[in-house]
């Protein structure tokens, strides 16, 4: 099927405070080995982290593009402070590479020049997608909590408008952002005085209930799901419904192997059942979930009735 062959696998922006060195190593390996078509770079969560790695951005872009990847730079999800407004404005002024906008401040700065819509911009429905397309959007990443039937309607609307449409199929779901840094709070500090304690949690800081049940992950100002989203069993449905891009969010696991599992599933060289077993093995103790897709509690894992 032509449509299926066109489905792109993407790597979302790193949500965590990985060191510059870790990022360089990560993207070098992605460039050389990962079967992903497109890679999103840039700091989306905390503007204080950007100075640690933004100097490497041109070299990383060059490295990935040389490997045949399309590179997109994502903007901050929360824009409040002067440095955040400036960072957003600076990215919006770039001609290349493409940008993914995650805040209305970025939309304002970008005007009608081409851009992608990020998952933090709340493109929940066909009316909003049509509005965004009219303002220059070329591509939209749907919110992580959107259920399957709504994804199908949104994807059809996006394709009618010739927009790419993307859904996160792997990694912790973004659940909330705040002005307050919860990493700093956990260590008795404030955001301005955080001393970058978030760098110690490459996969987020786990929160458990007081009766010891895993529940959420803290990533600076962001709160994420404890489970990794896993829509491997749903990929065929997503593609049939018109989703053109499937997003893998970088976690502290072997992301090249994760990408290979999804690629092989898309290429039908690996059965969904076998792929899911391999993915679970790559994810260690972390639970896998697809509740949002099935319109139920996000942490839940709903078994597919059949592979169709």
């Amino acid at each position: 099927m032509a449509v299926k062959d066109m489905t792109k696998l993407t790597l979302g922006p790193i949500a965590y405070h990985w060191s510059a060195e870790a990022r360089r190593d990560f993207y070098a390996r992605i460039a050389d080995e990962a079967p992903v078509d497109e890679v999103y770079l840039g700091e989306v969560i905390c503007s204080k982290r950007a100075p640690f790695h933004e100097a490497d951005l041109p070299a990383t872009i060059e490295r990935l593009e040389r490997a045949g990847k399309t590179v997109i730079v994502s903007t901050l999800a929360e824009v409040m402070l002067k440095r955040e407004r400036k960072a957003t404005g600076d990215l919006a002024a770039m001609d290349a590479p493409e940008i993914e906008v995650n805040n209305a401040a970025g939309l304002y700065a970008r005007g009608r020049r081409a851009h992608r819509i990020g998952p933090f911009l709340n493109a929940y429905n066909e009316a909003t997608i049509a509005w965004m397309a009219g303002q220059g959007a070329t591509h939209v990443c749907l919110p992580a909590e959107l259920p399957g039937p709504a994804i199908a309607v949104a994807a059809q609307a996006a394709r009618d408008l010739r927009l790419g449409v993307e859904v996160q199929v792997f990694g912790r779901a973004p659940l909330a952002v705040s002005a307050r840094c919860y990493h700093a709070r956990a260590h008795g500090r404030t955001k301005d005085n955080c001393q970058f304690v978030c760098e110690n949690d490459a996969d987020g800081m786990p929160l458990r209930t007081t009766d010891d049940r895993p529940i959420l992950r803290v990533n600076g100002i962001q709160t994420q799901s404890e489970c990794y989203v896993d829509l491997l069993p749903e990929t065929e449905r997503l593609v049939a419904d018109g989703v053109t891009h499937l997003r893998l969010m970088p976690q502290a696991v072997d992301m090249v192997a994760v990408a290979r599992v999804f690629r092989a599933t898309l290429d039908r060289t690996l059965s969904v059942a076998e792929a899911d077993v391999r993915l679970a093995a790559l994810c260690g103790d972390t639970g896998l979930s697809n509740g949002f897709y099935h319109g139920t509690a996000g942490y839940r894992r709903i078994a597919m009735a059949s592979a169709g």
């Binding site: 929360e78 909590e145 659940l175």
Partner: peptide, 21 residues
């Protein structure tokens, strides 16, 4: 409210009912 309103899916994650939708 602690989270940025309109950007919070905590309730949906635990209950299946969405604050935004």
């Amino acid at each position: 409210g602690l989270m940025v309103e309109g950007r919070c899916s905590l309730t949906n994650y635990l209950t299946g009912q969405s604050t935004n939708m």
